[in-house]
Design a protein around this nucleic acid. Structure first.
Lengths: 186, 186
DNA sequence: ACAAAATATGGAGACAGTCTCCACTTGTCA
DNA sequence: TGACAAGTGGAGACTGTCTCCATATTTTGT
């Protein structure tokens, strides 16, 4: 996956600048900035921006990939240190809490999950795998029903992400997670 | 809501033509047509198209509003003729089946639910109300838990709609509905 | 039946983003 | 240090959206 391309020093610097600036803007709630203007804001030419990140989503993915990886790591850790049903609950509740604190992540995940482009789906593939692992472990130990694949949970998570800007987000999301967990009891 | 504006005869005709053409195209799977081209295809000028339907979503809503109304009517009917939990199950299962058969509806609902514009949210408000009524009835009769609002269900439905083009759509959607129903038991 | 008023039409063109292209700059390696 | 590879930037082509208004059609009043 990670092609062995030793990026030139200035290119690496520019790439980092772009990601840093994007993170800053996302944190401030600026998502719908003109892509070209964003380049200017980061102090690079449009061409450079487009070479590093062909699309808006690619940039968003780069900004949040650490966060996404951390989530997956957390899932793996929970899975090995806790009973499967507890692990899943912690993971899902944590997921919602995290979205509350990071609007940009919710936005990014929404578009990544909706996106058809296989290349960009990478970001969510890892998440899907993490969920799948939690489910499998739970099914094996008998603490979760075994007839539900990760796709169903991902659909629900997608719905949750997409609603990040609604006033009743938190209670509704929590309620949905509660339903899922209750429904997953064998 | 429905302003008393007697539309001129030719205007009414054009409006109907536009909706008919849009329905035809949606049924054929053509969703991403250029809006201006669409006007040409329907045999009207761009100005006319924009006057009748300010946005793509407005057109989509017009195309599917009958279908949406039928869904809500079905919910109401089920609610009065069946035990609440059965009614909800029938409604949700029917919803998924309907989406399978009408890709365009799934697409439309996805964007309506995601849309922030209050004006366009009308289409889903009715759906939300239908779900709310089913839940309330169920809670009153004790066949459904009473601590879950319609928002949670709508989130799940949004996730389902958004996944309409994925290969595993049907089984995943069915599984999610199963989870919700199981989770809703008191 | 006719004219005036009200309403609607269509499509040229203004506008706003996106993205490409390539002459030039910067970094790397021997 | 020179030569080659890699990367840059931003002008401008391109694409789709949407507005504007001179013209056409329908309705209303007599």
């Amino acid at each position: 996956m990670t092609d062995a391309k030793p990026l030139r020093a200035d290119a690496r610097r520019n790439r980092a600048t772009l990601i840093a600036k994007a993170r800053e803007l996302f944190t401030d709630g600026c998502f719908d900035l003109r892509f070209d203007d964003f380049a200017k804001l980061a102090g690079v030419g449009t061409g450079t921006l487009y070479r590093h990140f062909p699309t808006r989503e690619a940039l968003a993915e780069a900004v949040y990939q650490e966060e996404l990886a951390a989530m997956c790591a957390r899932a793996a850790e929970l899975r090995t240190t806790r009973p499967a049903d507890e692990a899943l609950e912690s993971f899902l509740r944590g997921f919602v809490d995290h979205l509350c604190a990071h609007e940009g992540l919710a936005r990014t995940l929404t578009s990544l999950m909706a996106g058809q482009s296989a290349a960009l789906a990478d970001g969510t593939r890892a998440l899907t795998q993490a969920v799948a692992d939690l489910l499998t472990t739970g099914a094996a130990s008998g603490s979760l029903r075994d007839d539900v694949g990760p796709g169903a949970i991902m659909m629900a998570l997608h719905g949750i992400c997409a609603a990040y800007d609604q006033p009743t987000f938190k209670p509704d999301a929590d309620a949905l997670i509660t339903l899922l967990l209750a429904g997953l009891k064998p």
